[in-house]
Computed example of a mutant assay.
Amino acid sequence: MAKPNYNFEKRQRELAKKRKQDAKDAKKREAREAAAQTATEPQPAAPEPADDSTTNAPAAPRVHLRSSE
């Protein structure tokens, strides 16, 4: 009786797994590219704010309060 070739079977399983992963990666890549296409489409420009002297004023410092636990 012939001896089973486990190395061949293992290699076939690995190749099938790699093909499946490659297909999954290609699908993700296409989705990312499609999202990038929609993100790069020109959008209507927002109106510029009026030129006020308050826009150039320095921002107030942020104060972080610690919570008592």
Rank of each mutant, 00 (worst) to 15 (best):
A39N: 09
Q12M: 14
A36Q: 09
K17E: 04
D25Q: 14
F8W: 11
A16Y: 15
K10D: 10
A35K: 15
N7R: 13
A35S: 10
T40K: 00
A26D: 04
A35W: 11
R13N: 08
A16F: 15
E14T: 11
R29M: 12
A36C: 04
A39L: 14
E41D: 06
A31M: 02
E9W: 07
A39T: 07
K27C: 03
Q37Y: 13
Q12E: 03
E41S: 06
K18A: 12
L15H: 13
K20V: 00
K27W: 07
K10L: 15
A34F: 06
D22R: 00
K18G: 02
R19E: 04
R19H: 08
K10G: 05
D25R: 15
Q37A: 14
E14D: 10
Q21N: 07
A39V: 05
L15I: 09
A34D: 12
N5D: 15
K27G: 01
K24W: 08
K20W: 06
F8L: 15
L15Y: 13
A36N: 06
A26T: 04
K10N: 10
E14C: 06
A31Y: 00
D22N: 10
A16N: 13
L15Q: 14
L15N: 11
F8R: 14
A34C: 03
K18D: 00
E41K: 14
Y6V: 14
A34K: 13
K20D: 03
P42Y: 11
T40L: 09
T38F: 00
Q21E: 07
K17W: 00
E9C: 05
R13S: 06
N5E: 08
A35T: 09
T38I: 04
Q37S: 09
T38H: 03
A23I: 06
E9V: 07
A26V: 02
K20S: 06
E33A: 09
Q21L: 00
Y6W: 13
K20C: 01
N7M: 12
E41G: 02
K28G: 05
E14W: 06
A31I: 00
P42I: 03
R13W: 01
R19M: 03
P42K: 08
A23K: 07
R29W: 12
A34H: 08
Q21D: 12
K24V: 05
R32C: 01
P42S: 10
D25A: 12
K20T: 07
N5Q: 09
A26S: 07
E33K: 04
E33W: 08
E33H: 09
D25N: 13
K27P: 01
T38P: 01
Q21Y: 04
